[in-house]
Design a protein around this nucleic acid. Sequence first.
RNA 1: CGGGGUGUAGCGCAGUUGGUUAGCGCGCAUGCUUUGGGAGCAUGAGGUCGCCGGUUCGAGUCCGGCCACCCCGACCA
Length: 539
Amino acid sequence: MAGKTKASKTDGASADAEATAHETSAATKQSAEKKGASKAKQDGAGQAKQAASAQTENRFVQELSDLDDYSRWYLDVVYKADLADLSPVRGCMVIKPYGYALWEHMQRAIDERIKATGHENLYFPLFIPYSFLMREAEHVEGFAPEVAMVTRAGGEELEEPLVVRPTSETIIGHMYAQWVQSYRDLPLLYNQWANVVRWEKRTRPFLRTTEFLWQEGHTVHRNEEEAEAETLLILDKVYADFVEREMALPVIRGRKSESEKFAGALRTYSIEAMMGDGKALQAGTSHNLGQNFARSFDISFQDADGQVKLAWTTSWGVSTRLIGALIMGHGDASGLRMPPRLAPIQAVIVPIWRKDDEREAVAALVSEVEQSLRAAGVRVRADWREERPGFKFNDWELRGVPVRIEIGPRDAANGQVTLVPRTDRTAKETIATAGVTARVQALLESIQTMLYEQALAFLKSRTYQASDYEEFKALMADRARLGFVEAWWCGDATCEAEIKAETQATIRNMPLDQPTGKHGACVHCGRPGAAWAVFAKAY
RNA sequence: CGGGGUGUAGCGCAGUUGGUUAGCGCGCAUGCUUUGGGAGCAUGAGGUCGCCGGUUCGAGUCCGGCCACCCCGACCA
């Protein structure tokens, strides 16, 4: 396939895909096209460059581990799986129905856990008086650069500018100060689902956008122990539990270093997940704010002993960034792979027919299976679009639907259907119609488990322990092996900064379960290790 | 904010030293044939060539200014 021009390259690609229908998947081919185009564009190169990229199409699958290609693969999946679209406002995105349905399922599962741990939902305003942001010194320093402000409204300059919330600690602190009087008012356990705006220099759909959706929990406690327990409870029983059980992604629970903690927090904890290219993604954070915000906003109470005391507060959040984690944590060469528990569509029925009478028989069976599945609570859709079956197979694989149900003339004649799991398209099975619902439910369970196990195996295979700095640097420089490196760290911020400057790796967190026994030497400076830390390049 | 690149149909692109009516592929619409791994043929719709100004008989093409977007880096609570 000597593609000399874009046109013939495209033709060559599709002809090739038909000839070899094994690993040359949809996403691969589409990505390859896009990649070829952008490469040629970037280099402003001529025909030699284009011919070269045409030749690499077949092995693009393996190049997914390449960082540059990975980011292109990610964008392809986001747009081609119809999760989101670009917006006319730079850095903002439109979340499309398929992506929003995914978010709704995430919300439901997270909200259940938030409520199960004793919290209630409420809602605070989008606008915050500018002066509020200024109250907590560290907080203002952290957020000021990326705050959007309203200075004009109602046809005139505002007396005091309003900031569009980048997070709500300040306005919530202001209100809590009025709501908390006695130790009997505590703890205050509230959460809100909201949008926030942070003016980022560089954005990527779901991972970092100017506006994003999230939940932010804000609680007030009587003492440090209670606040700390709350912070860790949320991290483990809400966030880690959700990401591991619903999203099927293993995470590392740990504490952030001083330089990585939330602006204004006493301590920040995070869960960190590994993406398909070995980079880390912070999937959720939980902060023990100490008495910092209580002091700035005067959240105090009279305790049982009659003394007026400053309260302890916490805040914690997860966002639509989790969608990015899901994509990069499970996606493969064919596109997205939705964990069944969150999949907007858990099973898709693809009808196949030639003649009208065949269509009738197939339609009857499709309808029967569809109703049976729906009655059993399975989120199912029959795809009657006027496309050919092969197109639909690829399309739904790209969108990550866990189970495909093929129903054709052969099936109709035999009273059976054909099932294909997204995790292995060669594992086709036929089953009598009577058993379909039970079998689909079992398949969904096993796919959920399989996705977790695959992600866990990948995490383990890409987690290393570096005993010396040379080994550390080598690991961080090797794209094929890139992952998490566990090592001792002296606790010095200077040392941390040097590692970052030299390797681009940051301390993701210091795992909650620290090794027992004696500490080793800091991987960078050799001084006594203060903490066992996970280092990685991160999104 | 620094470095690099690109703006021509919804998307991806071509357009020679300036020269008639600006093309190609995908997608889209209509029809027929198809349908168990990304269909074929036919017909058709779709453009103030990013914006403003200049040079010229004539500008997608040359010159100047502006704007937007993309990539790499810095930043990212």
